[in-house]
């Protein structure tokens, strides 16, 4: 199959990314390039830097060194665009993020949570934003909850609203940071199936997860992070079924055991 070169161009890239907190170096020079439609799963032991890494991709954390590039343009540390550089505001408009603890706005209804970005940031009309939001809420199976407040939802429902909120910005990339880790086990499935659906529709995603089976199932590529570096990378088959790195072997064995 020949790929259209534009399709193959990276949407988002991290180039020799380093991040330190004081003297503690969390990320020790990481590179990643995500092409359109790719789903990358980041796995690794806690403290390996997975979350820090994914949070650098939308500048939620400011890298100590290295660059983030979006649509082949460098991202600056300013909020607004300037010259050739893209500002953080623009980056975040196109790169959505879903958090472990949902972080829904508790003073707004489900519908308002989803329309907030389109109305305030994208300057769309309320009518347009509400139509879009209702469409997305039905996609995540929560259309009938549109006037509920977040406190009245289960964890799984909250996370599906959070996904709809991120999708309402019509992002080109979606970053998912341990989105099922705060959920009761019986609620994990409903969130994973929504993400699975997004992957099937070709959404470009980077996913930090502890759900090894899910990672193997949905990811086109898996990255194993260990002590701030990418220790192994490859297809699900390579990384999870035939790991070469001894620490990865140990890590995977715990999940298969």
């Amino acid at each position: 199959m020949t790929l259209n070169p534009e399709m193959n161009a990276p949407v988002i890239e991290a180039i020799s990314l380093r991040k330190s907190y004081g003297t503690h170096e969390v990320l020790k020079g990481l590179d990643l390039s995500l092409a359109r439609g790719e789903v990358v799963a980041l796995i690794g032991p806690s403290g390996s830097g997975k979350s820090t890494f994914i949070r650098c991709l939308n500048m939620m954390e400011t890298p100590t060194q290295g660059t983030i590039r979006f649509r082949e343009k460098s991202v600056s540390r300013r909020f607004a665009d300037k010259g050739e550089e893209i500002g953080i505001g623009t980056l975040r408009r196109h790169v959505g993020m879903v958090f472990q603890h949902f972080n829904l706005f508790p003073h707004k209804t489900v519908l308002q949570n989803v329309t907030e970005g389109p109305i305030i940031v994208c300057r769309r009309t309320r009518k347009e934003a509400e139509e879009l939001a209702m469409d997305l809420l039905s996609q995540v199976g929560l259309a009938e909850k549109h006037s509920a407040y977040p406190n009245h939802l289960s964890g799984g429902q909250k996370q599906r609203v959070a996904i709809a909120r991120a999708l309402a910005m019509e992002p080109e990339v979606l970053l998912l940071d341990e989105v099922t880790s705060a959920l009761d086990p019986e609620l994990v499935g409903e969130v994973l199936s929504v993400i699975r659906g997004l992957a099937d529709k070709g959404m470009t995603m980077a996913i930090v997860t502890h759900e090894m089976a899910f990672a193997a199932d949905v990811a086109t590529r898996i990255l194993f992070l260990d002590q701030g570096v990418i220790a192994e990378t490859g297809s699900a088959e390579d990384v999870i079924l035939n790991p070469k790195n001894p620490r990865l072997q140990g890590f995977v064995a715990r999940f298969n055991g």
């Binding site: 939308n58 939620m60 909020f79 505001g89 623009t90 975040r92 408009r93 959505g96 993020m97 958090f99 603890h101 972080n103 829904l104 706005f105 508790p106 003073h107 907030e116 970005g117 305030i120 940031v121 994208c122 959070a162 909120r165 991120a166 309402a168 910005m169």
Partner: peptide, 27 residues
């Protein structure tokens, strides 16, 4: 107000003023 609220507002591209005015202050 939880740090996650700032982050959620920032993640949908809000400026720090928009985030303060629309998300943090009302709560």
């Amino acid at each position: 107000i939880d740090k996650g609220q700032h982050e959620a507002a920032a993640a949908i591209g809000m400026s720090s003023w928009q985030s303060m005015y629309r998300i943090i202050l009302p709560q």
